[in-house]
């Protein structure tokens, strides 16, 4: 089984987010980049599924050389080789086109992404890739098993879950529950250095949309404290001031 895991490089969850150039670009000063947490889950499941020589794992990242440490970490966790499409990841549409165009030259049985990247929270890349390749996709997978060229996936739906079976190849967006993220061990870190990292050029993708600027959400006013012995006051405030009950 050939597995492709899509890795996105995102600001660490505790990063303070500010903007530069008149609020048109993220201020990357002091920001620590990490593997998107959901992609770690995808990678961990791929390592389990490909275990005992049952498959190979390629990781792909669309981005600039600054992301190479993130890619090496993915190799240390257990991917066999890596591909970096050398371009600024403009948006999900651009990224998905790069990944789909690479995937067309290979025969992947399973393409894994995270359910969403924690920077733009789009959940778009996987649907785009699947449609560009004309194959099925399942978003927000909570469990993923592979048997005889078909995937059984538990997917989250509003107020419940759904179990679906789908033939390979398929694109699956993984969420919590699919696997526990793996921490690279010493052997992994050593071997990652010599694993192949291929750098390929980007294909042209016409822009259909773009982000023009950012705002920081308006700060909330100071908290109004209600005395713990006067709970009725809170109910009154929620009713007549906040108007939410």
């Amino acid at each position: 089984m050939k597995i492709l895991v899509c890795i996105s490089n995102v600001p660490d969850t505790t990063s303070k987010i500010t903007f530069t150039d008149n609020n048109t670009a993220l201020n990357t000063t002091g920001i620590q980049y990490i593997i998107n947490p959901y992609d770690e889950i995808a990678l961990a499941r791929a390592v389990e599924l490909a275990g005992n020589g049952q498959g190979t794992i390629t990781v792909i990242h669309v981005g600039e050389a600054a992301a190479d440490p993130t890619i090496r970490k993915a190799l240390a966790i257990g991917a066999d080789d890596a591909v970096r499409v050398d371009a600024r990841p403009r948006d999900a549409w651009f990224v998905a086109n790069q990944i789909a165009s690479y995937a067309k030259t290979q025969d992947f049985d399973l393409i894994l992404t995270g359910r969403e990247s924690i920077d733009f929270n789009g959940s778009l890349v996987q649907g785009y890739i699947a449609e560009l390749l004309n194959i099925p996709s399942i978003s927000i997978a909570k469990k993923l098993d592979i048997n005889d060229m078909s995937a059984t996936v538990e997917r989250e739906i509003e107020g419940g879950k759904e179990v679906v079976q789908v033939p390979l190849p398929v694109v699956v967006g993984t969420a919590e529950g699919v696997a526990e993220p793996k921490i690279p061990n010493m052997r992994g870190i050593m071997s990652a250095r010599s694993k192949p990292l291929e750098i390929i050029a980007a294909v042209d993708v016409p822009a259909l949309s773009q982000i023009t600027h950012y705002d920081t959400p308006p700060p909330r006013g100071n908290v109004k404290l209600v005395d713990k012995d006067d709970i009725a006051q809170l109910v009154e405030l929620l009713h007549s001031e906040a108007k939410v009950i």
Partner: peptide
């Protein structure tokens, strides 16, 4: 068309311009 969305897990609001 310009439309706003939440980004960076609620830490920012992005304005997106749709040109197609």
């Amino acid at each position: 068309w310009e439309i706003k969305k939440s980004a960076f897990s609620g830490k920012a609001i992005a304005t997106q311009e749709l040109t197609a």
